[in-house]
Design a protein around this nucleic acid. Structure first.
Length: 271
DNA sequence: ATGCGGACCTGTTAGC
DNA sequence: TGCTAACAGGTCCGCA
């Protein structure tokens, strides 16, 4: 479900309810997410105050003074704020109950997500240590991408979805950014010009900013933490539109597989 | 180092 | 209508 805009939207919705609040109880109903939820999680976090809630890539970091909860939503995860007492459903795996009577609930049908703990700097955690720059940061430039791409043969779409290159760009926004930039998704990353990379980086930043403003993309069941869907779906130009006419040139959009992910593009507009 | 395919897991949809 | 296969917003891992 979540790419960067959805994670950002989720986090912004949670913050007011959990920051400066104390974790009064922890309920783990299903231990086996992508990695097991640490058996000693409760011991670490009970009675700790959340002193900050941040995002790094698609990871959500809930900081306490003794360590950090690291949450990833995988393909199907979501976090909701509830009032204490709402009965759990089948895929509600974790509850953090706060002293303000609010509950932070992790739901994740496919269980590709993660709910981890580290006592160290979370940015040194193995999962975060090798992440590339934030796409909305000023260090993410056309020049940066172009330099990283030299000699690389992977498809440009797979390249921008590689979290070691840049974080937060998943299948939806990679597809959309390449469409908007007029770049064919299967081109070898090393073949693009620096100018093309400038265009692409601009497109990535623009699409992510706009999607965040729209509250993310709701394809099926993504909801913001207030329960509202995201409205970016209304603006998708390529993703999910295989076989439909290109909104620029009217030719039929095509689909190919790149890195086992479906990739829709316009054979006329994207060269 | 890079590139590729498989793996993790459940739910929904497309196709017969 | 019912069964089966394919597919889905992510990304780590092992192998060539």
């Amino acid at each position: 479900m979540p790419e960067l805009p959805e994670v950002e939207t989720t986090l912004n919705g949670l913050k007011p309810y959990i920051e400066q609040q104390v974790i009064a109880n922890v309920i783990v109903r299903h231990l086996n997410l992508r990695w097991p939820i640490p058996a000693d999680l409760k011991k670490h976090i009970i009675n700790q105050k959340i002193i900050g809630a941040e995002r790094r890539g698609k990871y959500i970091l809930l900081k306490t003074k003794v360590g950090t909860i690291i949450i990833h939503l995988g393909m199907s995860g979501s976090l909701r704020i509830l009032t204490s007492g709402v009965p759990p459903k089948k895929h509600d795996h974790v509850d953090l109950e706060f002293s303000n009577n609010k509950v932070l609930r992790l739901t994740d049908p496919r269980r590709f997500g993660a709910f981890l703990w580290t006592s160290d700097d979370p940015l040194n955690h193995p999962l975060l240590k090798n992440l590339g720059p934030e796409p909305l940061n000023r260090v993410f430039t056309g020049k940066y991408l172009w330099e990283r791409a030299q000699g690389r043969k992977v498809a440009i779409k797979s390249f921008i979805m590689d979290s070691k290159i840049v974080v937060g760009v998943g299948n939806i926004y990679a597809t959309e950014a390449l469409f908007n930039a007029g770049i064919h998704p299967a081109l070898a990353a090393g073949k693009l010009s620096q100018t093309q990379y400038e265009t692409l980086v601009h497109a990535i930043k623009a699409i992510l900013r706009f999607a965040i403003k729209q509250g993310g993309t709701t394809l099926k069941d993504f909801l913001q933490s207030d329960g509202k869907p995201g409205y970016f779906k209304l603006h998708l130009k390529a993703y999910g539109r295989n076989g439909l006419p290109c909104l620029n040139c009217k030719k039929t959009l095509k689909e190919i597989k790149l890195g086992q992910r479906s990739s829709v593009y316009c054979p006329i507009c994207q060269k």
